[in-house]
Design a protein around this nucleic acid. Sequence first.
DNA 1: CCTTGATCTGGAGCGCGCTCCAGGTGGCAC
DNA 2: GTGCCACCTGGAGCGCGCTCCAGATCAAGG
Lengths: 124, 124
Amino acid sequence: MPTYSPGEIADKTGFSLDTLRYYERIGLLDDIARTPGGQRVFDDDDIAWLGILRCLRNTGMPIAQMRRYADLTRDERTMRERVELLEEHDREIGRRLAELAEQREHIRGKIRYYRSLDTAGEQE
Amino acid sequence: MPTYSPGEIADKTGFSLDTLRYYERIGLLDDIARTPGGQRVFDDDDIAWLGILRCLRNTGMPIAQMRRYADLTRDERTMRERVELLEEHDREIGRRLAELAEQREHIRGKIRYYRSLDTAGEQE
DNA sequence: CCTTGATCTGGAGCGCGCTCCAGGTGGCAC
DNA sequence: GTGCCACCTGGAGCGCGCTCCAGATCAAGG
């Protein structure tokens, strides 16, 4: 299995080195392998997990909830709870999509309004 | 034209009293009328403006950009720039909608995966 | 070896967007 | 008048999610 240095992982995942260390500190990331000298060594499983974190993060999940999810993944018997957590998050995303789309219409209405004024003003 | 106390406005707009004062301090809100004694008095125009702010904020516009928009509305000759600002924001919303929808699919895939494991596990 | 650049640690600091506080004033009901 | 609650001001504080720093160590090339 290939391994990667922290710098490579920062490039691949888009998380900064500081963020990777921060995530490890707060328990979002655990058991990152180390060289005998203490430098971190990542593998493809770590990349996959970071991909999940990136996805949850980008969809607005708070860190506290991601930690809860991370904790659940440490116990094999928590499939049900993981599904519940993700489903609640999915519903949250649904609400945000709906709100965003609705508010977008207001903004577009505003744009049309300005455009109409602008056109009217250019008639001279 | 009816007028409203700060408390009524907080109720109507969902902004807290502190946030209303904060918005006035940083220049998102100006010329709020006052009683002779110095208490704020809002009117329907203020409510409309706060509605716009609420919309921009709910769609993730940073305060710095809302300030820029607020500044533009103080000059009649800035219709073009206002439209540009709103259109850029509209595009930003579009990007966020697309990203949210895409990542949601990943999460749903994850849910389906857990579900399949769960069902398999229940066969005993 | 020695250099050089990547990485290590613990802890302080930051930017955003509010939120809270102390101490004082306004204004309406009684 | 007198309560009493709403509201005022300036400024400090907070929660989140990183981000930066100092000073030390590691690892690979020459």
